[in-house]
Design a protein around this nucleic acid. Structure first.
Length: 243
DNA sequence: GCGGCTTAGTCAAGCGGCTC
DNA sequence: GAGCCGCTTGACTAAGCCGC
């Protein structure tokens, strides 16, 4: 696709046909309704109503949707981005919090106007981009976020940052307040909780989906952190949902 | 960098519920 | 009651973490 000269913002829907491509401009994708599956070099995720996604230029990505959906998409020309954006070669997924909701509201009101230039949208994007830059996550943490359901070695993570494993552990703890192992576990626990609460998958299947080969590992993880087994957790969460 | 301790992952055995 | 399935528990091993 050709580069663009101005920011273009519009509501878009995505079909169920998988589409793989890249483009010379960046994209900011904010959720409106439904969900969208996105796969990049670093991410493979379902973009729902709780996260937004930034796609840097030249980032090959695949997307498709299985249900009705709508997203606010901003096409951003290259000259508006700083060079650091290149580090985000696989994109960046960010929690869609109240601040982003406010930004989305303003952007939506701006794209509703027919305007000769896109000054207001440009300024809004500049503000959003400054937040986005603060959200820049180190490459190894991006890798964990995208691949926590697979086996991840400390050596691999250390290599991504160019550190040796011992120093990497110290560096990681300084940045996140926990060890790499603990961070991976917290992601797995969170995902397992969602699957237990919202699906009828067996404990074994859930364990395998979050990165364990055996369900015993998931049982122990739950006993350590939740003081109950996965099955009891599922019962409790469904009882709460009924009330 | 090393050594010891801790923890995660795996395996195997066993328990309980369900079906025939 | 036997067989199957899903799940839990205990023991062992290897990797990771931490203090020196």
């Amino acid at each position: 696709m050709n580069n663009i000269k101005n920011i273009l913002g519009e509501r878009r829907t995505y079909s169920n046909l998988a589409n793989t491509h890249d483009h010379s401009f960046a994209q900011l994708i904010l959720p409106l309704q439904g969900s969208l599956f996105i796969k990049t070099a670093s991410y493979q995720l379902e973009l729902g109503e709780t996260r937004l996604f930034f796609l840097p230029p030249q980032c090959q990505h695949t997307f498709y949707a299985n249900s009705q959906n709508e997203f606010l998409v901003l096409d951003i020309p290259n000259f508006m981005l700083v060079k650091e954006t290149e580090k985000l070669c696989g994109g960046l997924s960010i929690v869609f919090d109240e601040r982003w909701q406010a930004i989305r509201l303003l952007m939506l009101s701006e794209i509703g106007y027919v305007s000769a230039d896109s000054h207001n949208l440009t300024n809004l994007f500049r503000y959003a981009y400054s937040i986005l830059q603060k959200n820049y996550t180190p490459q190894s943490i991006q890798y964990i976020n995208a691949n926590f359901q697979e086996s991840i070695s400390l050596q691999k993570l250390a290599n991504l940052e160019g550190y040796n494993p011992t120093y990497y552990c110290q560096w990681f703890k300084k940045n996140t307040g926990m060890t790499p192992k603990a961070y991976i576990q917290s992601l797995r626990l969170q995902r397992a909780k969602e699957l237990l609460a919202h699906t009828d998958f067996s404990i074994l299947r859930i364990a395998q989906q979050v990165g364990y080969e055996h369900h015993a590992s998931l049982t122990r993880l739950f006993q350590q952190h939740e003081k109950v087994t996965p099955r009891i957790y599922r019962q409790q969460s469904r009882n709460l949902a009924k009330k």
